[in-house]
């Protein structure tokens, strides 16, 4: 029974990793950039959720999950601003400059928030407070169910968007070849901005879900979460939507089971060990295709 519970726990945190990993994987697929600042978007989203609840919703009768609206708006805006100001000018620069810039943006957001709100965590009351559901005798919280369900729905919508719509196809084309995409009339600029916007909006959803599981916000919270989500994207096969989700869920489950049955201290080591193992066996990730370099 405990096992089942831990599995669900893993699916819950895994779903959050998956949502964050989607942002990493989409941006990476198109811009070949590890957007280290993506974790900080989650952090900003968490603050937005916390403050919306504390300052607005607590004063009204509205349910707390309405905070999702400002959270998504803020995350999306910040994602777009970062792309425009910091990454766009560097599009043709060496990859390492992009990486360092991403680290710089990430530090900037952390430290600015630290300066404004201090290092201590801000907490909120729980967001979903319905009674736990009974699931084969295990009690599962509504938060868990909502998290898993929302992630599933968003993944399907995202996949449909990319496969079926004009904009989605433009994204795929751009990720294969900038030049060719531009030749057939796709605006690379606009596609990149849209990619950042979608990734950041998903991060917004992820941050509300995260806050509903761990009800607090602090400046450093996005850092490790972001790195684990990127790890998940790589495990699943970077650039691939299903890969990000698979990677996220696997990572979440492995982490939850390690914490419960092996050692909570070792869980990070095991998660990262999993990444190494996967890449050594399959260098392009679980769902990735191996390609030979043409000479």
């Amino acid at each position: 029974m405990n096992f089942l519970l831990q599995l669900l726990n893993g699916l819950q945190i895994g779903s959050i990793y998956a949502l964050v990993a989607l942002g990493y994987t989409m941006v990476y697929g198109i811009a070949l950039l590890i957007n280290f600042a993506h974790g900080e978007i989650i952090m900003l989203g968490a603050y937005t959720t916390v403050f919306t609840i504390q300052l607005l919703l607590a004063q009204t009768d509205l349910p707390y999950f309405v905070a999702i609206i400002p959270t998504i708006v803020i995350c999306t805006l910040i994602g777009i601003i970062i792309e425009r100001l910091a990454y766009k000018p560097l599009r043709n620069s060496p990859r390492i400059s992009n990486l360092i810039t991403a680290i710089g943006v990430s530090l900037l957001l952390q430290n600015t928030m630290m300066k404004i709100f201090g290092a201590q965590a801000r907490s909120v009351p729980s967001i979903f407070h319905a009674k736990p559901l009974d699931f084969f005798g295990a009690k599962i919280s509504v938060t868990t169910v909502v998290t898993i369900a929302v992630t599933a729905v968003l993944t399907i919508l995202l996949q449909l968007f990319i496969k079926k719509t004009k904009y989605g196809k433009a994204m795929t084309a751009t990720s294969e070849d900038y030049g060719a995409a531009e030749l057939v009339g796709i605006s690379v600029d606009r596609t990149l901005t849209m990619t950042f916007a979608i990734g950041s909006a998903l991060a917004g959803v992820a941050s509300l879900l995260y806050v509903s599981a761990y009800p607090q916000a602090e400046p450093m919270m996005g850092s490790m979460l972001g790195i684990k989500a990127f790890t998940a994207a790589v495990v699943g096969g970077i650039g691939l939507i299903p890969g990000a989700v698979l990677g996220g869920l696997i990572l979440g489950i492995v982490e939850a089971l390690t914490r419960a049955f092996i050692s909570s201290k070792l869980s990070d080591a095991i998660v990262f060990g999993l990444l190494i193992l996967v890449l050594l066996i399959k260098p392009s990730g679980l769902l990735g295709e191996d390609r030979k370099e043409k000479v």
Partner: peptide, 13 residues
């Protein structure tokens, strides 16, 4: 740290 990270971004840009 804010100045440091800004400088970092500026140099890269």
């Amino acid at each position: 740290m804010i100045i440091y990270s800004l400088l970092l971004i500026m140099v890269m840009l």
